[in-house]
Write a protein that binds this DNA or RNA. Structure first.
Lengths: 369, 369
DNA sequence: TGGAACTGTGGAACCGGTTCCATTGACAGG
DNA sequence: CCTGTCAATGGAACCGGTTCCACAGTTCCA
């Protein structure tokens, strides 16, 4: 029971000895096997209590072939939207017997390293991959190893995914601005060939372009800007936009973080929002409510919760989860950064109550078997 | 190598067979033991390569008595300040062989459960406890089990801690307001008997009270308000304050989150900040820069990094870390929410460049052996 | 030239659980 | 009363590594 290096350790053998039974019986008690008499069970439980015994999770994992751990691969886990999703994941895991292991990814090297290490059941019983399109080879290896995978905010072959319809979100934002009477609408988004392969920005841009085209409104050259997903970059890009002779009357930013950069730029240029420029973001992170940002809300917390649930259910069933796509609803939250192009609202007036416009919501048929 | 339940698994025995050596030799190669000839080593490495072998971390952990995992116990890990600290922890862990396991705490039950489970070397090789004062019994058990512990933003007997001088921060904020000429300074902070025992708010309040007393300024009854650490609550408390006949001319909120609630309340009451009310926060989370909040900055990211480093060093040494207190510096970041009480700045004027005032910084002698 | 010292290696024991299998004893049915 | 069935249980084998121990072969020195 005492080990120089390991400190005081109570093992199953100690419990067995104390209760006067075999180790197998203790194990059966621990695992709620029905094949134990009530008398014996009581004795074992008493011994466990007295010795304050806790099974060693490593030994248990080794012999059962799983480790009661749920891995979450998440890029830049400190970004507001990732945090919000993680909170959902943690909420779903609460009360379950699984620990949450975080694999933070900030570069392709990180990503590949983690994927290489995680393609086995001994690191995590299930994997939740957030926002990163996983390399098909990794998915294949995970499937071969029998590790259930759920994607969140990305998609991949043969794997369930919880996603938002980014294209539709792009449409929603653009339609809102068009409806207000804007025509000179600029777009600020992610680099299409960003190192980790994020696609949300590109999809949102597609929705924007499509809607503009459908409305017969031309997008002037240079009105679509790309850059790393950082507030400062969005600010810089916007500054250039606002300095143009054909200054846009509205900017659709592909995320709230970027939209905040847009607001900064407008403020720095001495322009009124929404009087001179309207701004729409995407995500509805917590700050956005505070800053009065009009934005496309996606249910971040909910998405994390749903994805984790699917994973937990699969682990309970002992089967790989059904590879369907779970599409969560979007809605436009209209706050105080959008108005008609010429409209000049009085400043400091009490904010108008939020209005929301919903997009189609619900499940979709499997995309692929 | 193939198992119905576990998928394709390559074990050390497979590698040994393939290389024509014993399992022990493969293990020695894996662990960089010098007692292997170059020829043999090369053969083993080739076999590892060919079979794409990866050691099972559970088996390794079981036999070595540790699990290459670093546990972080963190209350409300999605709060802005916790996230910022976690980012520092993740940065320090990057490149180390340790995985990051998150134990989220949202209630005393959570906390006790986690502490009960973590007092063994088999769950995490080291523990980083954030913001939560750990129960002394748990600390004792962890020490007995030889699990190194580092506290971050709390303190405890015989355990190293990375802390900020919250009392001094309270002084800094209060002095700033007094220096501007304020006298009617209110304070909004956490409940002193909050369920998880956070003490930062109380310390900051102590600094505030002390400084007010030293300056000979009386704090009117009701000027010190407490409530759960949530923006909405701070807003509600502030609304009551601002409705008073002897309305405060300044509010010191014990965190930025709460300060944002204060700003909301002021805006809702139609009061100008800083014209009618000055507001100071604490933490300097990312949003604060954006909102122009004057605040006491504590190095959140840095603190996480430092704490994780101490833990990693201890794990390298194989010894418990030296129980000294590492005190990180504070500085007042003056932005645009504070001004002299009667002063009425022109609105929309370009923000003044940030000014910062530093507090004492550096290490302190051990608090206790 | 014999033996000590050292190197490289295989194999067994071990880490602490789970699970299969064999054994025991109780009880029912012929 | 003997046999078959079944519940309860002990104990061995196993999960996949690490590490200790023993041994063969080489080197070195007296």
């Amino acid at each position: 029971m005492v080990d120089r290096e390991r400190g005081v350790v109570v093992t199953i053998a100690d419990v067995a000895a104390h209760a006067g039974v075999g180790a197998g019986t203790v194990s059966r008690v621990l695992n709620d096997s029905p094949r134990v008499s009530d008398r014996t069970r009581a004795r074992v439980l008493a011994a466990i209590e007295v010795l304050d015994y806790r099974p060693n999770p490593l030994a248990r994992g080794l012999s059962r072939g799983r480790c009661q751990t749920l891995g979450v691969v998440v890029p830049f886990f400190t970004h507001a939207s990732a945090v919000e999703r993680l909170r959902g994941v943690a909420a779903a895991l609460d009360g379950s017997p699984y620990d949450l292991v975080l694999f933070n990814v900030e570069s392709p090297v990180h990503r590949d390293e983690h994927f290489a290490n995680l393609t086995r059941r001994d690191r995590a019983d299930g994997l939740l991959i957030m926002s990163l399109p996983p390399p098909p080879r990794s998915l294949a290896r995970l499937a071969a190893a029998g590790v259930p995978v759920v994607l969140l905010d990305t998609t991949g072959r043969g794997v369930p995914a919880v996603v938002t319809d980014d294209v539709e979100g792009g449409r929603l934002a653009t339609r809102h601005l068009l409806a207000l009477g804007h025509e000179r609408i600029a777009f600020i988004g992610d680099d299409p060939d960003n190192p980790l392969g994020f696609t949300a920005g590109t999809s949102r841009e597609a929705g924007y372009r499509e809607t503009m085209a459908d409305a017969g409104v031309k997008v002037p050259p240079g009105y679509v800007c790309h850059g790393p997903h950082v507030r400062a970059v969005a600010r810089r890009l916007t500054e250039a936009l606002l300095a143009r002779r054909d200054r846009p009357t509205a900017v659709f930013a592909s995320s709230d973080v970027q939209a905040l950069g847009v607001l900064e730029a407008a403020r720095a240029a001495g322009l009124d929002v929404p009087g001179d420029v309207s701004v729409v973001g995407f995500d509805d992170v917590e700050v956005s409510g505070y800053s009065g940002l009009t934005t496309v809300r996606q249910p971040l917390f909910e998405s994390g919760k749903v994805a984790a649930r699917i994973l937990l259910d699969a682990l309970d069933d002992g089967q790989l989860p059904e590879p369907r796509e779970h599409r969560l609803g979007l809605e436009l939250v209209e706050r105080s950064t959008t108005a008609p192009p010429s409209g000049r609202r009085e400043r400091g007036a009490p904010a108008t109550p939020e209005k929301t416009v919903r997009a189609a919501k619900g499940l979709r048929k499997p995309a692929r078997g």
